[in-house]
Design a binder for these strands. Structure first.
Lengths: 203, 203
DNA sequence: ACCTGAACACCGTTCAAGT
DNA sequence: ACCTGAACACCGTTCAAGT
């Protein structure tokens, strides 16, 4: 019987472990994620994971990779409703999708940007780059004429990325004092930052 | 004899543990930091730390707090050489000091912005806010007339912070594809971003 | 008050062994 | 090929005990 109960005994253990990891991150956070817990969760002995992964770090890399795919999906979904909007609106939506994803999955984000030597995990690097390339495409597609003020699309996209990612980190770590928010809701902060970037702080 | 060898037996163990933690972060990274290793390092039994800290998390909070003080010192030192420079130069220097500190102490940074519930550690929250306030002061002091384009100094400072922090995280995690750097050295990237912020991406 | 040693439950990883 | 059980060195934390 190839029921879903024991389907990982037929080659699905790898993905079952990744899925269990994503779930465990959401419920217990990054600290509580252990290989032994994952194995227990999918009903397998505590060293079965070593059949499919070199070590714990490799499992984390696979979970991080999955995170970049989910993040990419979230950004793409957000763009649906601003297809014909002006570039600032499209950029602002992409940045907002990023921050919303980060606030909804803080532990997953911390694994995605954690202490994994990216060079050892080419698939992870590729997934991260693919997310960045979505941002570049959004900037490039929205650019009509000289709207980017002479800047390269890659650099504008990087600027948006550093902002969305930095804001996400600071919000998750609760490092922004409440008086700096000045009655702006956390989810709306990113719109203000993107607007300042587009307008220019020094006029 | 109150030599430095056993000075922590007279009330200095707490600071000795923090110092050992900072050192261990630099040499072995955040993963390798264990309470038992810290105790061994300062020559004390593995549960002596519990005399001064509630648990491992509290030790990490103290190490993080120390990190914000060092970061503040680095930013202040960087400002010395741009005292009379125009505001963009002063802001760019502050952001560069931030990124330089981050790249020099990546593991310390990960503890500073790690999974510590800031609300449980008011001293840590205060240290983080003090760093942010330095940025606000730099923006406010450099502002002559309407140079900030009508934006609040708190918001401009937050924009600089999210950028410097986001770029630091992306660089440390090696998430920026090399083609996006376009032959710009890592340490110089922040200058480009700050310039774009000041000029405005959409003119 | 400050520190220690023994103990507990947990962890990542390895290895010999089973099918 | 895929999984298991026993074993090892490590960890955070607690507790009774020592000075």
């Amino acid at each position: 019987m190839s029921t879903s109960d024991d389907s990982y005994h037929h080659g699905d253990l790898k993905n079952a472990l990744i899925a269990a990891g994503v779930k465990l991150l959401a419920t217990e956070g990054a600290e509580g994620l252990s290989l032994r817990k994952l194995a227990r969760e999918v009903g397998v002995s505590h060293n079965a994971p070593y059949m499919h992964f070199a070590d714990k770090e490799a499992v984390l890399a696979a979970i991080a990779e999955q995170g970049f795919r989910l993040l990419g999906d979230a950004i793409a979904a957000g763009q649906e409703s601003v297809r014909e909007a002006p570039i600032e609106k499209r950029i602002a939506r992409a940045a907002r999708s990023y921050v919303t994803f980060a606030l909804a999955h803080p532990s997953h984000l911390s694994v995605m940007f954690g202490n994994l030597p990216s060079s050892n995990y080419p698939e992870l690097a590729r997934a991260a780059h693919a997310t960045f390339e979505m941002l570049i495409e959004i900037v490039r597609a929205g650019k009509r004429g000289d709207e980017l003020g002479g800047y390269e699309a890659e650099h504008v996209a990087l600027l948006i990325w550093t902002n969305a990612h930095g804001l996400s980190s600071l919000l998750i770590a609760q490092k922004i004092p409440s008086y700096a928010l000045m009655s702006i809701a956390e989810e709306d902060l990113i719109d203000h930052l993107v607007h300042m970037i587009c307008q220019g702080v020094l006029k």
